[in-house]
Structures are given as structure tokens and as C-alpha cells.
Design a protein around this nucleic acid. Structure first.
Lengths: 217, 217
DNA sequence: GCTCGCTACCGTACGGTGTATCCACCAATA
DNA sequence: TATTGGTGGATACACCGTACGGTAGCGAGC
């Protein structure tokens, strides 16, 4: 069975899922495929292009959610699919917003979102649409990045209270005990129990309401 | 004049400003300081710690905006300062949201934002506060990343229409000409004239309105 | 005063990366 | 049969972060 861009991208994704983007190297991918490192350059021009390939594979999965009945349901579905994809492939959040996503599936997702939002109330001309798309994307990108980062640090420090206090504690608790960051302290101590998906959904709804509300003319 | 963490961080920032985060290496920093590469490890444990150091220097500049008269002005000032900082130090946007920002100045900025937002209407308990802080940060992170990415691709492709069509054109225009992405095509063709700062401010205001609006109880 | 041990600096070296280049082999054609 | 073209592989280069061993200076004890 010969090599192909698809197969290369698939194993690259598998490796990135397992060991992160830093742990991903062309040599490891090649070894996994039982092939010399240079063979990959017959199918891919760059490591960067390989990354673009991987990204677009993920976008393909996001695009699968397709179109819902109303503009709002469509936007919600895409946003949640993006979040789900990023939780399945944490490296995806590392490149979210960091490079232009121009693959065919990425464009399809962009088209679906923009088309849905152009039907929203309060979006009258293309300038409105550009702003609304920008705001929504910004929120989704930032949310997903934050969540993945939190999940990573939680995993590295251990999830239970004691381990957390032990790892970040020596520094962070000392900082918080200075009394200079009372609000942050309260957030860290009292605010860890919120469900991540609910929070995402809540904020998404709020922002969607905000940006599609008809404004004073 | 001996070495110091501050001096190392300062030259690292200068180099990162000039050549990006990928072009930043401990060896280059050391050479710039007229010193062997290993000398840096007397002041810094890791490259990662050095990055944290650089990040916190930028946060120090953001923290300088201090407190404004009202909660809203404070939040707006911090958000704009963050954007300004990221535009001055584009690498900053690469790490925004990608790692926990726990330096003293980062915490100070977080404290100022959280304290301000806790005084906003519609923020009743700490759960509200957590959600609101999360939403705002997500938007700022995502916006800034998007803007920096756009600026980079604009710089690399050249800003004028012809160069753009020539570099991204062969691929992107072909994609858009397929007619499968009509809304995206309209956005790309007609929507390039919006001022970035105005857009940021507009969306920021909208979102701030949305998340601090008193909701049905 | 002399030696000894310790500390602070330094260069070298290792394992890894992305990628350019060259080479050996093998099939098909003149 | 001789040649050529292409294909897969190995080697090589420049660079990276960082572990490690050595060395020179210097203060303390006999």
C-alpha cells in the first residue's frame, strides 16, 4: 500500500494527539509509516504544509455537522463542533487563530458560519457581517484555547486539590496570600466547580444574543 | 556590567520582536549578550521560563494603564492595552491563552479586570464573575490572535491588491471562483476596508454590553 | 605561607530537529 | 545491450535545547 497525503496526515494526527505538537516530528511520522524521513517530501512541501493538511482534516469533521434548520442552530452546532474537535485534538487549539485556515473544509466551515450569520437579525450589510463573524470567531478561538490550556495544566498538576496546591501551590498560593490579588484568589478558590461545556454554551448564547441584537440605528 | 534576568528578558524580547518566536534561540540571545549559550542557564531554568519572563514583562506594560474611574473604562483600557501590546510584540499573541499566565504582572492585570467586572451590573455572584471574565478574555485573546495573523499574512503577501492576488490568488481565488463559498467570497472581496481598531472596539463594546446586561432572573 | 576545597564560569558534546543533496537501483526505451 | 529516467534511501548540514566535565580563582584551615 503506497503512501498518500491522507495517510501521512492521519498518522501525523494520531501522533500529535498522543504526544502534542512539540512531540511531532517528520522523522517520527516516517518511522511510524516504516519509511525514510525524506519520503514525506514527495507528498508534502513542508512541515508547515503538513500542519495545514492536519488542520483541514479536523475542519472536515467540523463541517460534517452540516446545516441546521435555523441560522442560530447552525452557528451553535458549528461552535460546539469546533470545541469538541479541539478537545479531541488538543494540538488543534494551538494553531487556532494562529494561521490562516484556507483549506477547502476550513473554507466550508467559514462559509457555513458566515451564511448563517448573514441571516441573523441586526446583520444588515457586509460590514455588519464581517464584524459579527469576527466577534464570534474570536470568542470561539479564545474560549477553546483557554479551556484546553486549563485542561492541560490540570492534567499536569493532577486534578485533586492537594496535588494542585502542591504543584502550583508553592508559587501561586504564596502569590495569592500576599493579598494583592483578592478577586483572583476568590475566583481560584471558589470558582472551580463550573461545568466547562455549560459555561461555553452560556457565554456563546450571551454573545450571540449581543452581536445579533438590533442596535439603535 | 553583569548579566541579569531583566537584561536577558529584554534582549530576548528585542530579538523576538525582530525575528518572531521561531527565530528566537538561546544561542542567539547569548551571542547578542556576548556570552556563551550556557551562561543563560545560571539565570533561567528553561527556555520555557524565559518565555514566561518575557510574557510578564509585556504584562507589566499592560498593567501600567492602572485603574480608571468606572469599571467599564477600566476594562476597556486593559483590553486596548492588551491589543496594543500584542501589536507591538506580535509573538505575544502566539502565547496568549496558550499557557497559564501566572507572573506577578499578569496576575495584576487579571486582578484589575476581575475587580472591575465584579462591579458591573448583572454580575451578582462569583459564578457570574467567572463566566464574564472568561467570555471577555476569550474575546480579547481571539481578536488579538486573528488580527496579528491577518497582519502577518498581509505583510508576507504584500498589502496591495495585485500582490495579494498573485500570492494567495492562485489558490484562494480559484477556490472562491468555484462558487462554493459565496459568502466568504463577498467578505474577502468587499470587506477589507474596515479599520481594525474600530472593529475591535465595536465588538468589545457589544460584547461588554451583552455580558453585563441584567438577565431574566 | 601553603595547601585544600569550593564556587562560578566556560566550552564541548549529545541527541534531536527540518531539510538539501547525492546515490544506488531498476524499469523501460533506443 | 547500452542508456536514460525516475524512484526510494541514506547521508549530511545547520541549527536547536541542554547535560556535563573541566578549570581557574579564591577564601579557609593547618
Amino acid at each position: 500500500m503506497p503512501l498518500s497525503r491522507e495517510k501521512i496526515a492521519a498518522t501525523a494526527i494520531r501522533l500529535a494527539d498522543a504526544h502534542g505538537l512539540d512531540g511531532l516530528s517528520l522523522r517520527k511520522i516516517a518511522k511510524e509509516l516504516g519509511v525514510g524521513p525524506m519520503r514525506l517530501y514527495d507528498y508534502v512541501i513542508n512541515k508547515s504544509e503538513l500542519l495545514d493538511l492536519m488542520v483541514d482534516v479536523v475542519y472536515a469533521r467540523i463541517a460534517e455537522v452540516g446545516q441546521r434548520s435555523g441560522w442560530r442552530d447552525t452557528v451553535l452546532a458549528i461552535a460546539h463542533a469546533t470545541r469538541d474537535a479541539a478537545l479531541d485534538h488538543e494540538w488543534f487549539s494551538d494553531v487556532l487563530g494562529g494561521r490562516p485556515h484556507l483549506g477547502p473544509h476550513a473554507l466550508a466551515v467559514g462559509e457555513a458560519t458566515a451564511a448563517a450569520l448573514s441571516a441573523a437579525p441586526g446583520v444588515r450589510d457586509i460590514d455588519d457581517l464581517q464584524r459579527v463573524v469576527g466577534a464570534l470567531n474570536a470568542f470561539v478561538i479564545g474560549s477553546v484555547r483557554r479551556e484546553v490550556t486549563e485542561r492541560r495544566t490540570a492534567r499536569s498538576t493532577g486534578t485533586d486539590e492537594a496535588a494542585f496546591q502542591a504543584s502550583l501551590g508553592p508559587y501561586l498560593t504564596r502569590m495569592l496570600k500576599t493579598g494583592r490579588y483578592p478577586t483572583v484568589a476568590r475566583l481560584v478558590i471558589d470558582g472551580a466547580h463550573l461545568n466547562a461545556e455549560d459555561t461555553f454554551n452560556h457565554n456563546l448564547t450571551t454573545i450571540l444574543d449581543g452581536i445579533t441584537r438590533r442596535r439603535r440605528t
